[in-house]
């Protein structure tokens, strides 16, 4: 079951703009196994979307540029492949669903044809068979009356239904990796719950590996097996869901967890632990730790030298000078979640 699907090593991506070079991704490494969900969390501008778009080769180059690093999918290096070579992977091996189901469907094309389009592109089957498959996909994602829905246009659907159609399109070629970039951010909570449930069900059924990008820690808690926390174009901490939520190592992760009120906790009129300041400017990233300027535990070295990765036995790692042997001991703040520790109220 532990088949390695994707390995990304030291990926660096920059955008050349008139204002200079934006270092959007600055040395990101992660991997994804079959049938697992990796969540990438972080604030807007932390580089999470650019990372996965680079894996999908969706960033136009130029202005984007892969400065270094490798992306290995099932033993094959993808960096350096031409656009045409990538076509064999995109949509077939990796598929993506986007944040905004309102704008990511083609408004002039009937739903059935949009699903069949991808199948016809990658497989040598007749139009008839492709339509059959499309119909099955609609059934699988739980659209009522699939026959009727094949010939409807996207604008006649609600946001939740459109996201189901997006998922049908993405999974039509039975990809090994599904990349979901904020798939439920635009949806209401009750619809979000339905879509997440659908994704979990399909993952169990098809064994798809999911890379989930989100900033909603609740969604992460429900979906993720492993979590990578991104900040300023780097993964600052990565570990299993339990490690990140109950034993976080990096001050930024502490800040993220502290800034969210837990719905399970009684309000006591206390303040949320806000992270002061704003994320770093990626035109001129700081020489040391990217989080140093906002970190309550910042030391002299943090602003000068980037921290090294400290890895625990289980593979949970974080990049922070506090984890160095010479650093002073800092206790993480008390979080509502840590106190609760999976108990009901």
């Amino acid at each position: 079951m532990n088949e390695r699907l994707l390995t990304v090593e030291d990926l660096r991506v920059s955008f050349d703009t008139y204002a200079g070079e934006v270092q959007a991704v600055r040395g990101v490494s992660f991997h994804l196994d079959r049938g697992e969900t990796l969540a990438i969390v972080g604030e807007s501008g932390s580089g999470k979307s650019v990372t996965v778009q680079t894996v999908m080769a969706l960033n136009p180059m130029p202005p984007a540029r892969i400065k270094s690093g490798s992306i290995v999918y099932k033993g094959r290096e993808l960096v350096g492949l031409s656009d045409r070579e990538m076509d064999a992977y995109r949509g077939k091996e990796f598929a993506m669903i986007f944040q905004d189901p309102m704008t990511s469907l083609n408004p002039t094309m009937k739903v059935g044809r949009q699903i069949a389009e991808g199948i016809l592109m990658h497989e040598d089957i007749s139009r008839q068979e492709a339509q059959e498959r499309a119909l099955n996909m609609l059934r699988m994602v739980g659209l009522p009356n699939p026959e009727l829905n094949m010939v409807r246009f996207p604008h006649t659907y609600s946001g939740g239904m459109r996201q189901r159609i997006m998922i049908a399109i993405a999974l039509a070629c039975n990809p090994s990796i599904l990349i979901a970039d904020e798939p439920t951010t635009a949806l209401d909570v009750t619809i979000q719950a339905q879509i997440l449930e659908l994704m979990n069900g399909l993952k169990a059924e098809l064994g798809t590996g999911i890379i989930l990008i989100t900033h909603d820690l609740g969604v992460v808690a429900r979906m993720a097996d492993r979590i990578a926390v991104m900040y300023g174009g780097q993964i600052v901490e990565c570990g299993s869901a339990d490690e990140i939520f109950y034993d976080p190592l990096h001050p930024y992760t502490w800040g993220l967890l502290g800034s969210m009120p837990s719905t399970g906790v009684r309000r006591e009129g206390k303040k949320l632990i806000a992270i002061p300041g704003t994320p770093p400017d990626l035109f001129a990233p700081p020489p040391g730790c990217a989080f140093a300027a906002r970190c309550p535990h910042c030391m002299k070295i943090c602003t000068q030298t980037p921290p090294e990765q400290s890895v625990t036995e289980s593979g949970h790692y974080a990049s922070c000078w506090l984890l160095d042997k010479r650093a002073p001991q800092v206790e993480p703040p008390e979080f509502d979640i840590r106190k609760e520790g999976g108990r009901d109220e």
């Binding site: 009750t190 609740g218 969604v219 808690a221 993720a224 969210m260 719905t263 399970g264 520790g341």
Partner: peptide, 12 residues
């Protein structure tokens, strides 16, 4: 509505 809100607590 309340049941649909995911809680930032994986064990729960």
């Amino acid at each position: 509505l309340l049941a649909a809100v995911p809680r930032a607590d994986p064990r729960w």
